[in-house]
Every structure is written in structure tokens, then in C-alpha cells.
Amino acid sequence: MTGFFAILKQVGALADDTSTAIKNTANILSDDIAVTAEQSSNFRASRELPVIWEITKGSFLNKIIIIPIILLLSSYLPSVIVPILLLGATYLSYEGYEKVHEYFFEHEQESHKEIEDEINAAEEKQNIKQTIQTDFILSIEVVLIALSSVMDSPIVEKVIIVTIVSFLATIGVYGIVALIIRLDDIGMWFAGKGYKRVGASLVYTMGFLVKALAVIGTIAMFLVGGGIYAHDIHLLHHLQTEYFQNTFFILFDALLGLIIGVIAFFFISLFKKLRTK
């Protein structure tokens, strides 16, 4: 019996640590949902759920690749963790500013003519690839935050907890994203059952969310990117805590992410032009 109760105690401790890790990753997951939903709302209605499934599989693969690498690096080469985070933050900030730049400087009115299926398929494949790349960066952040919650635990517990949190994150994020982008269908179903007001509200909400997510997703990229820099670079962290109150930390993160995105965009654009010449 003693051994049985010892096992129960270990399971309870494991559950507590897992719960703590999930709570600590909640903020990044909210940004993850905004970014992913915005990117996933650009597909044709008939392809939305199949595309979400493809992205979900890509996200699972990302976690399978990231988890063992991060665990090994944190144990044997912890000094490279911060540079990896900063590279990921730079990519997110760059991607966020790229959307802003395209909207203000490269936005063109497109005709509403039917696009050939071959073009749609190619664009869909490219969008899936880009979304999975963004998920890879966000997945690194999720894994690292989950790991930071159990750094003092034995290695077996670390592996179990980080794996559980990471895979639950994928299921939660893409489950919510699938729900968001199919709200209009849910609304039509309610309308067909006689609940017209409920159905109309859901259809209206879907139209509003699609527009709002384009903005929220971009801001989330700046917040995550700037937040990583503010947290991991001492000088920036000092500036944030010295001149910004807690309620304005989010503004500091967003502005910092925007600045990093502009700088990254400038150098990447310059590199592309030089390579073309």
C-alpha cells in the first residue's frame, strides 16, 4: 500500500506541475490563437477545415522536433536558448511589419473574378507552409515557457509535462481556430433550427472576427516579438520596468516589436535587392 500511495503522490505532484505550466503558457496561447486564426481565415470556405487539419498536423510535427531539441539544449547548452528566442522574436516582428507594409504601401484593389483552381491550390499550399512556419516560432516559445515552470523537476517529469502542455496547446489553439472560422456555418445551422436571431448574430460575429483578427494577429506578432526582447535583454527589461508601469508593459512590447520589425524588414529588403542585382 505504501508504494501505491507513493505513486498517487507522484501523480498528484505531476498534475500540479502540469497545471502550473499550462497557466504560464496561457498568455502566449492567446497570441497564438489570434495569429493563427488570422492566417487561417484567408482560405476558401470549402477548404477551411481540411487546411486547419493540415496545419494542425504540421504543428504536432513542430512540437515533435522542438521538444527534444529544447530539452537537450537546456541541459547541455543553455547559453543558446536566449539567442534562439531572439531570432524567433525577430522573425515574428518582421512578419508582423511585413503585413503592415503590404497594407499601406503595396495594397492593390483586386478584381473579384474567379481564380483558377491551380492557382488556388498553389496559394493554399504556400499559406499553409507560412502558417506552419509561424507556428514553429510560437511553439518554441510555448515549449520554453512550459519548461521554465518545471526547471527543478527530474528529467522524466520535465519530458512528460512539457510534452503534455505542448500537445494540449496545439489541440486547444487549432480547435478554437476551427470554431472561429466556422462560426458562420454554426449560425446558419441555428437559423435553420428556428433560432434566427442567434444564427444571424453568429454570422455577423464571424464577419467581424475575420476583420478584427487581421489586426489582432498582427499586433500579437509585435507583442510576442517585443515581449521576448524585453524579457531576455537586460537593458530593455530595465527600461520597461523603469519608465513603464505594469499596465503599459504591453504598449512597450508592441512598440518594441514594431521597431524590431521595421529594422528587420529594412535589412531583409536590402539583402533581397542586392541578391537580385
Score class of each variant (00 low, 15 high):
1 M>R: 09
3 G>A: 15
6 A>N: 08
7 I>Y: 11
10 Q>I: 12
10 Q>P: 02
11 V>P: 03
16 D>C: 08
22 I>S: 11
24 N>C: 07
27 N>H: 05
27 N>V: 11
29 L>S: 11
33 I>W: 01
37 A>L: 04
38 E>I: 02
50 P>S: 14
53 W>R: 13
53 W>I: 14
56 T>L: 14
57 K>Y: 01
65 I>C: 02
65 I>Y: 04
69 I>V: 15
71 L>T: 04
71 L>S: 02
72 L>T: 09
72 L>Q: 01
78 P>Y: 01
79 S>L: 14
82 V>F: 00
82 V>D: 02
83 P>N: 14
84 I>W: 08
88 G>Y: 02
89 A>C: 01
94 Y>N: 12
96 G>K: 04
103 Y>R: 13
107 H>P: 01
110 E>Y: 06
111 S>A: 13
115 I>T: 14
116 E>F: 01
117 D>T: 10
122 A>V: 13
122 A>L: 14
123 E>G: 10
124 E>R: 15
129 K>L: 13
130 Q>H: 06
131 T>E: 03
138 L>N: 02
146 A>Y: 07
148 S>L: 00
150 V>T: 08
151 M>R: 03
151 M>T: 08
163 T>P: 05
166 S>L: 07
168 L>D: 07
168 L>M: 08
168 L>V: 06
169 A>R: 03
171 I>W: 10
172 G>S: 14
172 G>W: 00
177 V>T: 14
181 I>Y: 04
182 R>V: 02
182 R>M: 05
186 I>S: 01
194 G>V: 05
198 V>E: 01
200 A>S: 03
201 S>Q: 02
202 L>M: 05
203 V>E: 08
214 A>S: 10
223 L>M: 08
226 G>A: 12
237 H>E: 09
238 H>V: 15
240 Q>L: 07
241 T>Q: 03
249 F>C: 06
252 F>M: 04
252 F>P: 02
253 D>V: 00
253 D>Q: 07
254 A>R: 06
255 L>H: 06
256 L>M: 00
261 G>V: 11
261 G>L: 14
269 S>K: 09
271 F>L: 12
272 K>S: 10
272 K>V: 04
276 T>Y: 09
276 T>P: 00
